[in-house]
Design a protein around this nucleic acid. Structure first.
Length: 339
DNA sequence: AACCTCGGCAACCGCACAACG
DNA sequence: TCGTTGTGCGGTTGCCGAGGT
């Protein structure tokens, strides 16, 4: 391990660096058992080790300490790390203090080699613990055929937005933000719903909530015209997108809103205030969605997204998308903020 | 068998801060 | 008050083994 160093702990002082041998470990252990470890420079001297005190301290705290728990991290530990990281960030020592037997170095390594990747794979930003809205994510959406993307949005809408009316959780909000990503992307593609209906033999039946979402921009800001014919005349578009509890949540916690706003290109506060997603759709996007409402007479007509996906050659894409919606870290992050 | 690539992890680096003379 | 020393901490490096070619 060749490194230029200006610290007092280097080979120019004739001190050894690099991996520790079992003999050195034993010397250090014996010395600490005999004298304790108040002064590491002294420990190194007393142990007869040609190492700097700092090196001895690191070896002890990261490896030789008797209470160190080695081996793979349990599910509980992993969850704890995720939770604490969402709250504390890269405060490894603070996180380690909550995990008996684990060192900050070990946790840091585990984070960098496993958890970080895991979050990224699930579309979660490991820094913010928020659903990602970066280019990579948008690019990944670009690989999904528009009709299936719409079906995915439909899926989220059916499973979450409706439930959201009765019981709002932060996870659902996160999902809605992701739905926003999908809708944003759909809106920026050149394919209209009508075109999709012609292009694909199996008609895509939209959840009324999603339909409302797609037309919610008629409220003012958006250039999109209102739906020509609505099967749900009593559906007040601006009141059905997100639930009142969501607004209440945002009022209760400024932090929540701030976090959302700071980490997402879509203003969640706007969503909460108006129960609409006007900010989700690019104002420069000229292509309106035209929804075929003929088959939407009853809720029972809605094709289960899973059924839709099961006929798809790219169903795994949507399996992954579904997984993405269920990220535990994301759940916890929001839960923590709200609490 | 030899070589290459990659991921995991131990150890080091460098900065910040506190204690002390 | 200032300089020195020790310690804590987060970031980074590079060794090493496993797996692939």
């Amino acid at each position: 391990m060749e490194r230029s160093s200006t610290s007092s702990c280097d080979e120019t002082n004739g001190l050894k660096k690099g991996p520790w041998t079992p003999e050195e470990d034993q010397k250090l252990l014996d010395c600490i058992q005999k004298y304790g470890h108040g002064n590491w420079k002294e420990v190194s001297k007393l142990a007869g080790l040609n190492r700097c005190g700092k090196s001895c301290r690191l070896r002890w705290t990261n490896y030789l300490r008797p209470d160190i728990k080695r081996g793979t991290f349990s599910e509980e530990e992993e969850q704890t790390i995720l939770e604490l990281h969402a709250l504390l960030g890269n405060k490894w020592s603070a996180i380690a203090s909550r995990l008996p037997g684990r060192t900050d170095n070990e946790i840091k390594n585990f984070w960098n080699t496993h958890l970080k990747k895991k979050l990224l794979q699930k579309g979660i930003d490991p820094t913010t613990h928020m659903p990602r809205t970066d280019n990579l994510l948008i690019n990944s959406l670009a690989n999904i055929p528009p009709d299936q993307l719409l079906a995915a949005a439909n899926n989220i809408c059916i499973n979450n937005a409706l439930a959201c009316q009765y019981s709002t959780t932060a996870t659902e909000l996160a999902k809605m933000l992701y739905l926003g990503n999908i809708l944003q992307f759909l809106n920026t593609t050149s394919t209209s719903i009508d075109q999709l209906h012609h292009q694909y033999p199996s008609p895509l039946i939209l959840d009324p909530q999603l339909e409302a979402l797609l037309h919610s921009n008629s409220a003012g800001i958006s250039p999109y015209p209102p739906a020509q014919t609505s099967t749900f005349p009593n559906l007040n578009v601006t009141q059905t997108i997100l639930c009142p509890e969501l607004e209440e949540t945002s009022i209760k916690s400024n932090t929540l809103t701030q976090n959302i706003n700071s980490s997402s290109q879509y203003g969640a506060s706007a969503m909460c205030n108006n129960y609409s997603i006007t900010e989700l759709v690019s104002a420069s996007s000229p292509k309106p969605f035209v929804v075929n409402t003929e088959d939407q007479t009853t809720k029972s007509n809605i094709i289960s997204p899973k059924d839709q996906f099961s006929n798809s050659s790219t169903s795994t894409t949507f399996d992954a998308l579904g997984d993405l919606m269920d990220d535990e870290a994301s759940k916890y992050y929001w839960k923590q903020i709200i609490e």
